[in-house]
Design a protein around this nucleic acid. Sequence first.
DNA 1: TAATCTAAAATGGTATACAACTCTTCTCGT
DNA 2: ACGAGAAGAGTTGTATACCATTTTAGATTA
Lengths: 223, 223
Amino acid sequence: MTAADRVYAIIKQRILDGYYVAGSYVREATIGQELELSRTPIREALRRLVSDGWVEVIPHHGARVVSWTQRDVEEVFELRVLLEPQVVRRAASRIDAPRLDSLGELACHMEQLCERGDDQAIDEIAVLNDRFHAELITAADSPRLQRLLEAIVQVPVSRRSFHHYSDEELHASMRHHREILRALAVGDGEWAASVMRAHILAARAAQLHPPARQTHQPRQQHA
Amino acid sequence: MTAADRVYAIIKQRILDGYYVAGSYVREATIGQELELSRTPIREALRRLVSDGWVEVIPHHGARVVSWTQRDVEEVFELRVLLEPQVVRRAASRIDAPRLDSLGELACHMEQLCERGDDQAIDEIAVLNDRFHAELITAADSPRLQRLLEAIVQVPVSRRSFHHYSDEELHASMRHHREILRALAVGDGEWAASVMRAHILAARAAQLHPPARQTHQPRQQHA
DNA sequence: TAATCTAAAATGGTATACAACTCTTCTCGT
DNA sequence: ACGAGAAGAGTTGTATACCATTTTAGATTA
């Protein structure tokens, strides 16, 4: 592991942790002194963070941690609604039994965590959910589709968790996983794609209307 | 614009123009001397080209221009079929009259060139067609969608031209442009998206079955 | 002839020094 | 008081150098 790799990981972690606030600048000299490295590996790490969409570079002025607007979030969901169904559409005719099994285990694990329902469990679900989607992408066997999605879903972890899901939304999400797996098991790409589309649209709804979180109450109009 | 930006653009253009043949190596020292720059900005440009998928690095041997397989072409079309309709779906509710006019002029110009039909005209059509699609993307007003498409549709010039189109395919392509504009003019995104989908699928068919090019002959089965 | 060794060539990674640029601030003239 | 312009500090951009690693091809040797 090179110094540039370490710097990349450190800066990324600091962004995720909120140590580097969105909109603030990451100074090359500053972390250089901090980590006792020259600017060279820091610059390389920053360039990689730029191409991964975590920071943006203003020429001759510095690397700034990207800010996310509501519009950015909507754009991402709009693209995921297109691309993620394509993932399972392709996967349906390509997936093999071992991977289906491993996806099934992931679904199982997530459901158990879902039953626990505490905050830590919710965090773990987010991790497993990422793995779930990543495995599907691998099964889709399309490097370009994978690249596009990776370029898209890189979102600050604060927005990627399931904390704004209601119980009902969370359980629906688990059912989606199961239904996708059933569709894949019988090789029905369109079925799988439809469920995935619903899955993403549900996630979008949960993100866009986080305050409306009454599980057992009668329905209520939102903005 | 920094030197690294220029180097990036130059190398990319040379790949698109076919000056750097697929499989050949881009030597750091060579272009360094050629452009009278040190290895530093060249290295940075090459890293970006790698992460954008234009070249691949063989460790300790150099940066090689990526080769396109038939499968790559199919992957690109598969993604364009998803993304380009979304472009016009968004554009339908956002486009303004001036841009519609300028798109109309582009379509006009392409149709005239289409009537000429010589090789040079075909080349010019490819350029205008790129502009046509680029204007649509601008009208769609989605930076991420734009970025994804730019990462996808930029293909070496040898594969981007209309030389493998039959007369009929070429005219159909022109009609698609017109129909898209009509749909946009009345703000019907789904109509525009459907035509665009057909437009891309037609382009795909022309690419995948280039030998079957008899316009006035009875149909013939292909591989 | 074939296996091995060797040296050249190229990149990989990092450090350092200097050049160029941007933004701020301060001065100067009106 | 106010705007234009210049100086300065701070920051990034680039050049250069160094050594390590790896590949390749040629030379050597049995």
